[in-house]
């Protein structure tokens, strides 16, 4: 998978799934629902986010509900990767299943400001800030999970496998 380069949106610790997408919006069609993402803490986010942007957050990102609408809404808004100090278990798995790269990195958070540009190399977990040349080591994924992400998620991955088998 190639390098992901994008502008940072910064969020704090414990961003739960009710913040990412409040439960009352879960039954809206995705194209409508995505405009409610992060509404409780950053109401302007959904309107201002651009295709290719990256979220950087603190600890336990995505805790709470198992709703896959949370990573789905972020992906639909154009978010191309999430770097957090740590992730909640179900969110992490859901993001991979949707083909959205998730990288754990504790050191980046303090050094990055909203609007900064970062470059991520998912294969090595390397994160770089081109403006000042600072580099950070993030987590990597085992090959079979990287393959899922490269295929665009678990469903396209399984479909491709069914076709070749």
């Amino acid at each position: 998978m190639s390098v992901i380069k994008g502008k940072v949106w910064k969020f704090g610790d414990g961003v739960d799934t009710d913040i990412i997408i409040p439960a009352r919006y879960l039954i809206l069609p995705l194209e409508e629902m995505k405009h409610k993402a992060m509404e409780p803490v950053k109401p302007e986010f959904a309107e201002k986010v651009n295709e290719g942007d990256i979220i950087v957050a603190g600890q336990n990102f995505g805790c709470g509900s198992s709703r896959e609408q949370a990573p789905a809404a972020l992906k639909a808004l154009g978010i191309r990767a999430i770097v957090a100090a740590s992730f909640a278990r179900i969110f992490y798995r859901n993001a991979i299943n949707l083909g959205l790269p998730v990288i754990e990195c504790r050191d980046l958070y303090e050094q990055v400001d909203e609007g900064d540009v970062i470059e991520i190399t998912p294969l090595t977990g390397k994160i770089r800030m081109p403006e000042n040349g600072m580099e950070f080591s993030g987590s990597t994924l085992p090959d079979f999970l990287l393959e899922i992400i490269n295929n665009g998620g678990l469903i396209p991955y399984l479909s491709a496998k069914f076709k070749t088998s």
Binding site: S65, S66, R67, E68, P71, I90, R93, N94, L98
Partner: peptide
């Protein structure tokens, strides 16, 4: 996510997303 409730009778139960 609250599927974990069923451990109260000694089952292994866990919550997943819709793709899983």
């Amino acid at each position: 996510s609250h599927t974990c409730t069923y451990g109260g009778i000694g089952a292994f139960a866990t919550g997943v997303g819709s793709t899983d």
